[in-house]
Design a protein around this nucleic acid. Sequence first.
RNA 1: GCGCCCAUAGCUCAGUUGGAUAGAGCGUUGGCCUCCGAAGCCAAAGGUCAGAGGUUCGAAUCCUCUUGGGCGCGCCA
Length: 580
Amino acid sequence: MKDTLHGIFADTLNRLRDQGVLPANTTIDVRFEQPRQKDHGDLATNVALTLAKSAGMPPRELAHSITEALPDTPLIRKVEIAGPGFINIFVAPAAQFDVVKRIRREGEHYGRCGLGEGRRVLIEFVSANPTGPLHVGHGRGAAYGDTLGRVLTAAGYDVEREYYVNDSGRQMDILALSIWLRYLQACGQSLAFPNLAYQGDYIKQIAAQLRQSDGDAFIRTLDETHLKQLGADNETSLDALIKWMRDLLGNADYQTVLGTGRSRLLDDIRSDLEEFGVSFDRWLSEQSLRDSGALERTIKRLQQSGHTYEKDGALWFRSSDFGDEKDRVVVRESGMPTYFAPDIAYHLNKFDRGYDLMIDVLGADHHGYIPRVKASVQACGYESSRLHVKFVQFAVLYRGGKKISMSTRRGEFVTLRELREEVGADAARFFYVQRKPDQHLDFDLDLAKSQSNDNPVYYVQYAHARICSVFEQARDRGMEARVPDDAALEVLGEEHELDLAKLLTRYPDVVANAARNFDPHQIVYYLRELANGLHTYYNAHRFLESNIERRNARLALIDATRQVLFNGLSMIGVSSPSSM
RNA sequence: GCGCCCAUAGCUCAGUUGGAUAGAGCGUUGGCCUCCGAAGCCAAAGGUCAGAGGUUCGAAUCCUCUUGGGCGCGCCA
């Protein structure tokens, strides 16, 4: 319907241009929106306002010329000029319900569009270090990234999801050390556990598993000086301990300890995300970039770009050439690359793979890091504008009105798994996606759990279940519960019915807009509106009435509503129960 | 100190390429089940869109400044 109107207006404006009312170079771009107020019509456009200046006439006068030139169409009941020059269109009631047929025809495809034109998009998200289980902060990134993927897919993009595994470097050494020390403790050795090592109980579990699979293979004799360092609470001692461990274990045993921890934690992360409805097309390992030589090649490539120099024995990248506030070290004085180096390699790898669009979903604490990453890809000759970064703020949990304090370092944090077990995956996803990612999120556990009208998840799901229940009722009463395809929609026309149809019409725009702005939360707000539209209609009218024609028309309308509720809930990864 | 993000109803937040009288949920108050699911609906109350300038037909939205919060600024990751 909107498309048809769009065509009518475009034709009309083109005609006016040919007639010389509008200048020859005018670009015709008509947009319609649903006005907030009903007396402003069903759709309104501000073309007369936007074109007034170039046409050299007052907006209202131009609006008058446009409406005069509009052809007769059964679609439009009435056209009015209002305010400074808005053209308000009152659509014929019968045309409003065409959307019902379209939804019933398109089913799960209703809401999709060709906005993306098949462009390839890579979304990298979560990418939590495999040094522990995912916590609720990662959960938000997971929900956002996955939902964004679903939205972009619906909008016609070719989406790939990727998890970048930071499985090399010092943090993995600390992981190995933590596991090994717990292992030694489990083998009966009495030793202190460093505060800077990973504290969580999961480390003990991995150590126990190691002992079960490899017995006493990793027991080593300890010496006094290192035993003392276990109690020292500083990074230098930790590095000394790591070196000590690697010497004592030898490379093969060290790799076994590390590899066991790495794979165990990644398995845990993977299954956690699967249960959360999040899956990835690719898990790309940092270590693999080192092993394949990509890291070395990247450093060479950067040097060849002419944007590096040596200072104090280190290799610097002149990122300030590209707007970064200062230059960055890529290779340390010691010859070891900084953490920045593999990240450059990873991003070049992404660009090399030829995506039209790349989206990094990162924790908000990484924002200062982006200018140097963009600088590095630019230095290597790529358009950094193809890389978009969305920052996700941390979620703060509340229970009983009180903030739950968390500390990753102390191993005191609520895991994503615990959250799912407590409130359920549906509520968790709904609450996460409800907010714009760059806003702080107050996550009220009591509210997410409550099976009451306070809980927005149930509110939307209830609307879906309610419709299913109506059809159930119809069957029980021996009515024909299948809606005939030729249901006479023209018998509809109650105000609530028109409101609902308008809401249904909006859905594809909502999806397109969410995709355009990378803002999945718009889906959530829309679903609440749609659920409200259904509930209101439900309370005002009976569907299962004796007039068969009207009953079927109403069933067709609410079945279309059910479909859109389902499509929208699926889009955010939440289930659509038929009863609750 | 410099940079990025943010400030909308008592609380939590929508409001996106600048549009008409700024919306929703919660909370408060008052109504609605002999009737398809009351996990629902209806109504009322609640605002200097942090403040001050500017841009224009028109600003919560764009620009500048001020105030008040969050984060970042390492040869850590």
